[in-house]
Write a protein that binds this DNA or RNA. Structure first.
Lengths: 192, 192
DNA sequence: GCGTGTCTGTACCAATTGGTACATACAAAA
DNA sequence: TTTTGTATGTACCAATTGGTACAGACACGC
């Protein structure tokens, strides 16, 4: 029997893409097995809790990625000047564009939020958006945005990103997402 | 055998809510049967094509509703003055807030757009957003928005609505959606 | 070389999936 | 009152669902 996978972390990204495009119920074990190249034996070896545990692992990985690549950078730089804070916000937009592949890639957390599945993963979904918004609002404030506006603009940005993904998918046109990001960038600059 | 339903149109709304909250694959025939109170016999009598035909019926109903309640009103009033056009746009926001129950109700078309199911219903999904944007852009132009800006603002509004729904669901907070609509309303006014 | 624990494939399971067949019941037209 | 077409419940179907059991195979430490 050929050994294919060293760690379970190796297949989590693949699982993520599957859940993204087929949803929770739509991602059958047969499909997972086919796409990952792993039989049920391996699958249940790495994830004794089955599909539920796979989703948890995926969500944790996504959350971790955003935490270290997006949220944390937004939060750091407490003593920085306004220009540095602006640069961090610009970096966030670039990272978001790359991660969501200009809207061609769906947001798993956003997708889950819309359906019944939400209830099974409330904590993660809640925390993800909340931490993002707080971190962004903080960076905006440090960039010179009036405190009472920062939180609202941060919410506006998150709304725009999620909506941009939906519309880019509907139209099958990445430009929709790029234009949206550009508008949001301008909105942040304009508020200064 | 008790007669329960006169026309198949009577259960289409119920089907819509099911697909909204459970997705395409998540909505099993057993669930449909339970929630509509109809056995498989009746279900396949009304929808010989099974689930696929049910979804088509739901999408057609939604599309028809938006066409007559949202798109058409935006398009009419070719000879009206600017104030009348503004009133039509205000009416659209009110209708949207009511239809999506301030973000507590998901947009089935938006939900489908995100996943693999999209490919089965491309035509409807494409048409829905496109006709909405064109109709809104027209109304904005008649309301006094510069022609080269109208289309972009219309896109911005659609993005905001979809994003507002996602975030309102994630937070389980209708205020997110209401605030978003308010921002979009202001954006339309500001562009004049 | 020999265990030992980590991986992997296969066979199997009950439950559920979407879908069909059909006998039957009912309402309205004749 | 009979006929006729529209509903409806039930039984049934093969295929697939998520999940379990377990016998092996491999790499590694000893």
């Amino acid at each position: 029997m050929a050994r294919l996978v060293a760690e379970r972390a190796d297949i989590v990204p693949a699982l993520g893409e599957l859940f993204r495009t087929h949803g929770y119920q739509g991602t059958s074990l047969a499909l997972i097995s086919e796409r990952t190249g792993l039989g049920k034996g391996s699958l249940y070896h790495f994830f004794p809790g089955g599909k539920e545990e796979m989703v948890q692992a995926v969500l944790a990985e996504i959350d971790g990625w955003f935490e270290s690549e997006i949220f944390a950078p937004l939060r750091t730089g407490e003593g920085e000047d306004e220009m540095a804070a602006r640069a961090r916000i610009a970096a966030m937009f670039a990272a978001v564009d790359a991660y969501f592949r200009s809207g061609r890639r769906a947001c798993l957390i956003g997708t889950f939020a819309l359906g019944q599945v939400r209830e099974r993963f409330t904590v993660v979904i809640d925390g993800y958006f909340w931490r993002w918004q707080v971190a962004l609002a903080g960076a905006l404030a440090r960039a010179g945005v009036p405190a009472h506006e920062a939180n609202g603009i941060a919410e506006e940005v998150l709304v725009g990103i999620q909506g941009g993904i939906v519309l880019a998918h509907a139209r099958d046109d990445a430009e929709v997402f790029r234009r949206t990001l550009e508008r949001l960038r301008a909105r942040c600059r304009f508020a200064l």
